[in-house]
């Protein structure tokens, strides 16, 4: 990797000021699970890396009435193990328990994953399907407004995710069909029956990253059962085609994973 200034932030305010000082070539690092490999491959050349992993206030997980707020610095392992998350939104704990491998889960964080918005990441599906709210050091952003395309989010320069607030759903489940090589989601479908209605988010498949499936939401709104999905046409248009899966196969898998998720949600 190339040389850079390393700053281990002690507090959110410290991180924000260090980021400001670094200018546009400064980079925040949470768990580093994307940034470090990118640096090692010399695909990124930041002037400064501001490490958020030492900020204790970002790591908390708190349950409120009908919701769970997860600090941006909570690792996937911490989310998976949290009794609060397991109790309120089991699907989210299950999702976290199956991200990457054990090493990744103990370094990677929810805030880092969302800020990176990898089109094959798991968390975006949960955030979008559960209608979560992303809390930053400047404002609150609704999930529907947050994801803006491949590795693109609504975050502005200098903005740092501090927490994600998830309303507890009535029912929810996530089913991932893993890419055989990378184990990222080739197709991941998160279904949730929420107070505001049924929400279905798909990751791994879309050309522009995570998206909600209006067709599946409509089918499930009347009848939240696997059977309701049968016969719902999933168009291949707008889906990825690569050496691992054609758009048609991904479209087919969305249906299969959605059915399995609905069945698992009970």
């Amino acid at each position: 990797m190339h040389n850079f200034e390393y700053h281990r932030a002690g507090s959110l305010a410290d991180a924000a000021s260090a980021l400001k000082k670094a200018g546009e070539d400064g980079k925040l690092m949470a768990g580093g699970q994307t940034l470090i490999p990118t640096l090692k491959l010399r695909l990124a050349q930041p002037s400064a890396v501001i490490d958020l992993s030492g900020i204790k206030e970002l790591a908390s997980i708190k349950a409120g009435a009908g919701e769970v707020t997860i600090g941006a610095g909570a690792t996937h392992a911490a989310v998976a193990a949290s009794k609060d998350v397991q109790g309120k939104i089991k699907a989210l704990a299950d999702l976290a328990a199956h991200i990457g491998d054990r090493q990744v889960r103990h370094r990677g964080t929810i805030g880092g994953s969302l800020a990176n918005n990898d089109p094959a990441a798991d968390y975006p599906a949960a955030v979008l399907a559960l209608g979560a709210t992303i809390v930053t050091n400047q404002r609150k952003i609704a999930a529907d407004e947050f994801f803006k395309g491949l590795f693109e989010t609504a975050l502005k320069p200098g903005e740092i995710i501090t927490a994600v607030s998830f309303p507890a759903p009535e029912k929810a489940a996530y089913m991932k069909f893993a890419n055989p090589a990378s184990r990222f989601a080739l197709v991941g479908v998160f279904v949730a029956k929420t107070k505001g209605g049924v929400r279905v988010a798909v990751t791994g498949a879309g050309e522009s990253g995570v998206f909600r499936s209006a067709a599946l939401e409509k089918a499930l709104s009347g009848n939240f059962s696997a059977k309701a999905i049968e016969g719902v046409a999933m168009p291949a248009k707008g889906l990825n085609s690569d050496i691992h899966a054609s758009a048609e196969y991904r479209a087919h898998l969305i249906g299969v994973m959605a059915k399995r998720a609905v069945a698992a949600a009970g």
Partner: peptide, 22 residues
């Protein structure tokens, strides 16, 4: 079941890491 080394038509190695080579 899993392993395939793939080149595209321009001779670029598409399976150049364990992210793509299974």
């Amino acid at each position: 079941l899993t392993e395939a080394c793939v080149y595209d038509k321009n001779g670029q190695l598409q399976t150049g890491s364990f992210m793509d080579y299974c």
